[in-house]
Simulated assay, not measured.
Amino acid sequence: MRKNIVISGGSGFIGQELIRTFRKEGHHLYILTRQAADRLTPLSDIHFIQWSQKDLKALSAELPDHIDCIINLSGAPINSGRWTRKRKDLILRSRLQTTDTLIRLIEQAKIKPKLLINASAVGIYGTSDSATFTETSTSENGDFLSHLSYQWEQAARKAEQFGVRTVYARFGIVLGKVGGALPLLNLPYRFFIGGKIASGKQWLSWIHIDDLVRLVVFIIDNQEIKGPVNFTSPNPTTMQLFGKTQAKVMKRPYWLSVPEPIIKIMLGEKSLIVTKGQRVLPQKALNAGFHFHFDTLDAALVDLLKK
């Protein structure tokens, strides 16, 4: 059945992959964008809405009365620039402001959307070399990524009071051919200088972009799923094993070691993205019967790195 799907943040890596799949399935898409609508190529099944210059009434007028799903991916990039106080404020504020606008749209809608899928991250659990996290684990553990994800989910949680099924998509490291973390992680190996990053013992909870998109579709079609959902493979790995698997698949050496102090000097507080991690399992997806096409790292990297 054709659905009306609203996406904010559709210009990013994940958003583009979702749009591609939804178009193939014949859904009608409403993309909330900050670009001028007349600069975007008009398409019969995609309605671009420049929402930054519209009040709620004007914005609502461009949306259908009946919305099956809102997917909120909007927010300033986490990986751009050093995490200065100003930059961190922008990263957080951009997410909260967008989410607040969507909540107000939901509040005034006569017919409430059936579902809100709001992006989040496994960083909400904090970092650990020994613990294993599922959706029932305690969240908000002090560092910036944990605080960011927690605040973002709290902002989206207001949709629940209007009877909207709400899912918090806690993304792990997303692997794709042309987007996500993989092209950057591959770069040292392409120059034959790949190797251990920091201790190598830090956990990396990853997911193939195809499985991420399939899980979003699965959630839309399975109305019993709500609350936090971990978007990670059932087989997380350590950074060291990840690097060795990369080297094997790319037929490159694994030899250079980059100590954690050097990474901290280079990246500052943002270094925790690569020097720290968390072992996260997608328990809710597995319990609901979702089947991962790429549940092992070898399979995922062979698929993504093949010529």
Score class of each variant (00 low, 15 high):
residue 219 I to T: 06
residue 219 I to L: 05
residue 16 Q to F: 01
residue 216 V to H: 14
residue 237 T to E: 00
residue 31 I to Q: 02
residue 172 G to S: 07
residue 282 P to R: 06
residue 82 R to G: 02
residue 95 R to Q: 07
residue 254 Y to A: 03
residue 103 I to D: 02
residue 94 S to D: 05
residue 133 F to Y: 14
residue 55 D to V: 08
residue 67 I to Y: 15
residue 209 I to M: 10
residue 74 S to G: 07
residue 129 D to W: 09
residue 9 G to K: 13
residue 71 I to G: 12
residue 277 G to K: 04
residue 272 L to C: 05
residue 59 L to I: 11
residue 61 A to L: 11
residue 190 R to L: 14
residue 59 L to Y: 11
residue 121 A to K: 06
residue 8 S to K: 12
residue 152 W to A: 04
residue 13 F to V: 12
residue 190 R to A: 01
residue 229 V to K: 01
residue 25 E to C: 06
residue 113 P to T: 02
residue 60 S to E: 10
residue 114 K to P: 00
residue 195 G to I: 06
residue 234 P to K: 05
residue 73 L to H: 11
residue 123 G to R: 00
residue 290 F to Q: 13
residue 173 I to K: 01
residue 104 R to V: 03
residue 180 G to T: 09
residue 111 I to G: 12
residue 51 W to L: 13
residue 126 G to I: 06
residue 9 G to D: 08
residue 269 E to Q: 06
residue 102 L to E: 07
residue 141 N to Q: 08
residue 287 N to E: 10
residue 293 H to D: 14
residue 305 L to C: 10
residue 37 A to K: 13
residue 197 I to R: 00
residue 301 L to R: 06
residue 89 D to W: 12
residue 299 A to P: 01
residue 19 I to A: 02
residue 233 S to D: 09
residue 199 S to P: 02
residue 7 I to T: 04
residue 56 L to T: 15
residue 92 L to S: 09
residue 208 H to V: 12
residue 130 S to W: 04
residue 182 L to S: 03
residue 39 R to T: 15
residue 30 Y to Q: 10
residue 281 L to I: 15
residue 88 K to Y: 04
